[in-house]
């Protein structure tokens, strides 16, 4: 009786302390995230016009979305391109960074230097420098080309002149074009997987060596080791990396829906239509991710606590 009372007292203190620790976050969440988010939902369903001293809202319900899907000449096309490119870029980025993470996690001479090199894209690719490197100016080709739209390497710039290399092989033109497209794509995706590699390395570090020792005693091959130990142990990191990659790819400047919306906001000072554009796109992404990630998410949730 006495002990249970004491226990309940400790639990109450624990509850109160926990709530106090996250209280500032809760306040900030309401003021700086939830309220703005609700307002942006409202923008999507309104026609927003400027008037003296503020903005005028006129509720139009689904008109913005109807316009985007039926009348806007670009929106559906860019939406479909963006979504399909997400479907193949995300698995490739996750797989590539997993492979690189595993390699960089192995013990070999020079791995500290190699890891430092792989951190470079994290510094450079996070912002405006990448814009400079990827935009064309004064007729000069960009230093690197990003995104699903970067298909041609023949106009110079870029890492390797793959087209010239491939024409040397005297393959049919369609094949050469396809191959150089895929090579360019892989280069571009690698450039965007810096943080993912770091997250995978940190995940790999937490797998206890004892598991591998046991499997070696049991006579498992490296391939079995990967599927029976490494991959299951990395499930949570894989989910974090996937969510992170989806977000990064979704908001990146190489994504046409996002860049169109952003130029509409800054160029035409319009808020209603771009918000509707982004919300609809966001919903599509969530639905697609839901279809593919629900099994992963279930196992993740069980491990949360």
């Amino acid at each position: 009786m006495k002990t249970s009372k004491k226990k309940r007292g400790i639990e109450a203190i624990s509850r109160r302390a926990g709530r106090l620790f996250i209280l500032p976050w809760e306040i900030g969440m309401v003021i700086f995230v939830l309220v703005p988010l609700l307002i942006s939902v409202a923008y999507a369903f309104c026609e927003v016009t400027f008037k003296v001293g503020g903005m005028d809202y006129h509720f139009v319900f689904l008109d913005n979305f109807k316009y985007l899907l039926k009348e806007d000449p670009y929106y559906t096309d860019t939406l479909i391109t963006s979504l399909t490119s997400l479907l193949y870029t995300i698995p490739i980025i996750v797989a590539l960074s997993l492979i690189l993470g595993i390699i960089l996690n192995q013990k070999f001479k020079g791995r500290v230097i190699m890891r430092a090199v792989f951190f470079l894209p994290v510094i450079i690719a996070a912002g405006v420098v990448l814009d400079i490197l990827t935009t064309q100016i004064n007729g000069q080709p960009p230093v690197i080309q990003l995104g699903a739209t970067a298909t041609s390497m023949s106009d110079g710039g870029g890492y390797l002149d793959t087209t010239a290399l491939l024409t040397g092989l005297r393959l049919p033109e369609a094949v050469t074009g396809m191959m150089s497209k895929y090579i360019t794509m892989i280069f571009n995706l690698l450039w965007r997987s810096g943080i993912q590699i770091i997250l995978f390395i940190s995940g790999l570090q937490t797998i206890p060596d004892s598991l591998y020792e046991v499997s070696r005693i049991e006579g498992a091959s490296k391939w079995e080791e990967f599927w029976m130990i490494t991959f299951p142990m990395l499930r949570d990191v894989t989910l974090l990396v996937t969510v992170f990659t989806v977000v990064e790819e979704m908001v990146s400047t190489s994504n046409e829906v996002m860049s169109n919306a952003q130029s509409m906001i800054s160029g035409q000072q319009r808020y209603d239509m771009p918000t509707a554009m982004i919300w609809f796109y966001f919903l599509c992404v969530i639905i697609i991710c839901g279809i593919f990630l629900v099994p992963l998410f279930r196992s993740f949730k069980r491990k949360w606590d």
């Binding site: 995230v33 309220v35 988010l37 906001i265 966001f282």
Partner: peptide, 21 residues
């Protein structure tokens, strides 16, 4: 779960309401 969700919200959506705010 809300913390994880905030990672996924595109900041472009929040910026204009934050601006007026």
């Amino acid at each position: 779960g809300l913390v994880i969700a905030t990672i996924a919200v595109p900041s472009t959506l929040l910026m204009i309401p934050q601006y007026t705010g």
